[in-house]
């Protein structure tokens, strides 16, 4: 077994495209769930609207990339208002139901045969990322540190992605130590108390939903550019649940929780995948016990086991504060 390869692959995954995408999605979700206590189960919908907004503008209508980005951002804001306006006055669980359904509606609309002229149906859209790569200032070559090795396109995507992650974290940090963030956290604890103190709870929840949705839309852009193609199944409910896993893994309501959570989540998946495959090819695991096609499922089981252990022994996540968790019973 090549342990060096296993670890360097895990390290590459920890800084790779998937980590960037899910860090951004989880930062947005952290604003919703971690800080405001909103149960948004449709984060994938925000990614889809942004990714497709960009791709349709550029690939279908030959508009400039910047217009595509603007349309994607606007789409995320509109989706947030559409979801929030009717549900945020109601009890928290209604938002959960509406968001999970809305995200599926968004995905199925982009997947539909009727609209395939614009969206490419289940095959998705390509040929829209040239605008993004054409402004790549990095000259062709190989870049990396230690075992990491990326070509100029990957380096460009990751530089932009990690810059966005950094800026998003900075924004969340600034907001959450302000009186505005204090109101959000108070709403998470008890919205009636916040109302009784003269704050417009509905307005704050709507702002939170829009902010988290826009942060999620950045993940949508990175999905589109990073893969140079958008497909409806990139934005399935699985995406939302991975993002939730990452938020809880890192520790909810912590600025860097989602980033570290995403890095660990994808590094773990890569590690178990590589380790299992190598153990198989080295003959440590007989074919009868575990076939090659089963490796993909088993690695998820192992990661799931790890997450269960985390929840049992460190329920507050990596960055969380156990004292806060003990206060949960009101």
């Amino acid at each position: 077994m090549d342990w060096f390869l296993i670890f360097s692959n895990a390290l590459a995954a920890a800084v790779g495209l998937e980590t960037v995408i899910f860090a951004l999605a989880a930062i947005g979700l952290n604003v919703h769930f971690g800080y405001t206590g909103l149960l948004n189960f449709g984060q994938a919908g925000f990614l889809a609207v942004a990714g497709y907004g960009l791709a349709i503008c550029v690939a279908t209508f030959q508009l400039p990339t910047l217009v595509g980005v603007a349309v994607g951002l606007l789409g995320a804001v509109v989706l947030a208002l559409l979801l929030g306006a009717p549900t945020l006055r109601l009890r928290a669980d209604y938002l959960a139901i509406v968001t999970i359904a809305a995200a599926e509606i968004v995905r199925l609309v982009f997947r539909s045969v009727t609209l395939s002229e614009y969206t490419g149906g289940s095959d998705g859209l390509g040929r829209f990322a040239e605008g993004f790569y054409s402004i790549n200032p990095i000259s062709p070559g190989s870049y990396g540190l230690g075992p990491l090795d990326f070509n100029e396109r990957q380096t460009w995507v990751l530089s932009v992605g990690w810059t966005l992650v950094g800026l998003s974290c900075l924004l969340v940090f600034l907001l959450m130590r302000s009186p505005w963030g204090r109101v959000l956290k108070a709403i998470r604890e008890d919205e009636d108390a916040v109302r009784s103190l003269g704050k417009n709870v509905y307005g704050y929840k709507l702002q939170s939903l829009v902010l988290g949705g826009v942060l999620g839309s950045l993940a949508g852009f990175m999905t589109a550019w990073g893969n140079a193609v958008v497909q409806p199944d990139n934005f399935s409910t699985e995406t939302t649940f991975y993002a939730y896993t990452i938020v809880i893994l890192g520790g909810a309501a912590r600025v860097f929780g989602p980033v570290v959570g995403a890095a660990i989540f994808w590094a773990l998946l890569s590690f178990t995948d590589n380790a299992l495959n190598q153990a198989k090819s080295a003959g440590y695991i007989p074919e009868a016990l575990l076939s090659t096609v089963q490796v993909g499922q088993v690695r998820l089981m192992l990661v799931g086991l790890g997450l269960m252990a985390l929840m049992i022994f460190r329920p507050q996540g990596l960055f969380g504060d156990r004292r806060e968790l003990a206060l949960d019973a009101r």
């Binding site: 009186p179 109101v183 956290k185 108070a186 604890e189 108390a193 206060l327 949960d328 009101r330």
Partner: peptide, 15 residues
């Protein structure tokens, strides 16, 4: 309705 995971001071400032 004390806001449990806010400090006493944060509770006050919210008012």
């Amino acid at each position: 309705k004390a806001l449990s995971r806010l400090t006493v001071m944060q509770n006050m400032l919210l008012g």
